[in-house]
């Protein structure tokens, strides 16, 4: 069936099977491979994207459910004036090792900072508690999100 979807501000129309998952629409049809595909069971969180501004696990959303809605992926983080503070924070604090969980972590971090510009360590850990880093690099991920908050606060 025909769907129309806005991804990172760009409108796309595609003819898809209803059973196509959002993560596969993004990766295979739109070639936006920054969103990763991991456990397929809504446990690992590497596929997190923002759907109408809210983090969701895109392996558990049908592409047809996202028709008419706004999706933001890691490719949509960068701003016209440079990297998003979340991206810079992950660079500054070595928030990635293998990088597999990074795009999902950054999308949730973006949402967190939009709603809570000064999150505590506990709040950051809770926000990413549905996402797994197989390198177990959580300490640096938390520091990266804190760094992003500081960058946004201008300090």
């Amino acid at each position: 069936m025909e769907i129309s979807i806005t991804v990172n501000g760009e409108d796309y129309r595609r003819d898809v099977e209803p059973r196509l998952l959002l993560v596969h629409l993004l990766r295979d049809k739109l070639r936006l491979t920054g969103t990763h595909w991991g456990c397929d069971t809504s446990n690992c969180g590497v596929c997190v994207v923002l759907l109408d501004g809210v983090p969701v696990k895109s392996c558990t959303v049908l592409a047809v459910m996202a028709s008419g809605r706004q999706v933001r992926t890691v490719e949509g983080l960068e701003r016209s004036d440079g990297l998003d503070p979340v991206q810079q924070g992950f660079i500054d604090r070595h928030g990635l090792q293998c990088g597999f969980c990074t795009s999902g972590m950054m999308m949730t971090a973006r949402w967190l900072l939009d709603h809570n510009p000064d999150p505590s360590e506990r709040e950051i850990r809770e926000a990413i508690s549905g996402q797994v880093c197989r390198c177990t690099g959580y300490e640096n991920i938390v520091r990266s999100v804190r760094r992003a908050a500081e960058l946004e606060a201008g300090s």
Binding site: V48, K57, T60, T108, E126, S129, G130, Q131
Partner: peptide
């Protein structure tokens, strides 16, 4: 569940 699943 977890916060992201609770969004949905």
């Amino acid at each position: 569940a977890d916060p992201v699943v609770r969004n949905r």
